[in-house]
Structure formats: C-alpha cells, structure tokens
Amino acid sequence: MMSVSDTGTSAKLKKIAVYTVLIISTIVVLFPFFWMVSTALKTRSEILSQSISLLPNDLNWGNFARAWNKTNFGRQFFNSMFMSLSVTFGQIITSAMAGYAFARFEFKGKSVLFAILLATLVVPFQMRAIPVYTIVAKLGWLDSYKALIIPSLANAFGIFLFKQFFSQIPYALEEAALIDGASRWQILWKIMIPLSKPAAVSLFIFTFSAEWNILFKPLVLTRSEAMRTVQLGLTTFQSQFSTNYSLLMAASAFVTLPVLILFLIGQKQFIQGVANTGID
C-alpha cells in the first residue's frame, strides 16, 4: 500500500505520461493530413530538394488552382455531388418507408424478408459488380448518372437504422393522429420522420461520405471522362502526374474537403452514429 503523498505524485506522473502518449498519438494520426496540405503548398523545387522541411517556405496556394485546372475537376465535383446527394436522399426515403413498415406493421413474410435484408449487408458492391455491370449495360445505362445513382437507391443498413429509431417512438402519438383520421402515409411523413431527425442525419452523413469516397462503382460503371467522379478522377490524375507530388496532394486535399467539412459540422452525429450502430 502506498502512502497518500506517494499516490499524489504518482497520479501526477501518470497524468503527464497519459498526456504525452495522447499528444504523440494525435501527431501520428493527424500527420498524413498535415503532410498532404504542407506538400500541396510547396514548390516543385522544395519537393525535389535534398533536405525535407516540415513547412513550406512560402504558401503556394497556386498549386490548388493548377491542380484544379489540369483536368476537369469542376465536372468531377459536380458528378460526385450529384451522385452522392441523389443516392443519399433516395436512401433516406426508401429506408424510412420500409423501416416504418418493419417497425410498426405485422405482415406476411416479414421475418423472411428481414432475414434476406440482413444477408444483403454482407455483399458489398464489389462482390456483385459483374452482374450489376451486366444489368446496367443491358438497361443501356452504362456511363450515365442512372448507372451511378439507381443501383444504390436502397440499402438494408438505412432500413435497420430507421426501424430501430421508429421502434423507440411511443405509439401514443400515432394513435392520436389515426383517430384524427390521418393516413399511415401522412403519419410517416408528418410525425415519424420529423421525430427521427437524428436517424436521418446519421444516414445522411454515413451514405453521403460513403458515396463521395466510393471508387469501385464509377470505375466499373463509367467510361468517359465526362462521367468521372472525384475519386476515379484522382486515380487517373495520379497516373498522369505520378511524381508531381504538390499537384497530387493539392488534388487529394480538395477532394477530401467536402466530407471533411461535413465531418467538422456534424462530428457528434458522425461519432455517435458509429457508437450506436456499433453496439446494437
């Protein structure tokens, strides 16, 4: 057993140790972000020089404009934004509707359908890319927004999220509305969805960032330069400018920016979303 004063000193030492390890870990984790931005601001000669400095001599913001203009990043941003937003809102609508049915109704085949939905969770896009490619080609949608959007308009994850959220809402609210003559459809959109903002926000963040960051889908389903998304564009940019690291890092940085901003605005929901889906 330690004496009281010993515990005091050792607690202080322990605190110092914890903060030291915390700060070192933070530096290690954040370093790639720092290095991306720092490199993006350096000149070519700084990158090729023998000694490496952590910070750029001057802030060459021009690298960002140069990277942006080297290829059609404007178009790619539009493509990614359009695809991600359409898929996200589509999934919120299909998931809320189905989630409501699974949370509130008893219907024939419910448990079988639910089990099937569960099973689809383990088959990501890459494992069904060949048949999806074939179906999309047969429909004549290859290399179009339809190809990028329609195959992703529903996902079991969103259905579970809404089902779970709806199940926690007390019945009383709906019963009152039913007595007032509201239809199930009205109840879903006027009562349940407004109450489920946290679930909708979680799904928005999760789906938007997943779609923004996806590579496999545009890689397989698009061909032309005009249909490229930012991630696919970044890989072709990489093949073109493989050693021009300040341009590559500038491009990586602005491709990362939209999800980073979303994360900084909604970090609570981002992190809470993981904790919620993680535990249940």
């Binding site: 984790v29 972000f33 590579l215 590559l248 990586s252 940085a253 990362t256 981002f270 992190i271």
Partner: peptide, 29 residues
C-alpha cells in the same frame, strides 16, 4: 478534441489517403 482527431482518418477516401501514403513512402523523396 482527441476523439475527433483520432476519428478523422475515417473521413478521407482510400484513394486520397493512398496518394498521401504513396508520397510519404516514395523511394527517393
């Protein structure tokens, strides 16, 4: 702050992060 910092790699795509890694691991520079 620390939780946000540790979580942040989750927001960058594998493509963008991969490029940063390629650059950090570049054989010459």
């Amino acid at each position: 702050f620390f939780r946000t910092a540790f979580f942040s790699p989750q927001v960058i795509s594998f493509v963008a992060a991969g490029l940063v890694w390629v650059w950090m691991l570049d054989a010459n520079k």
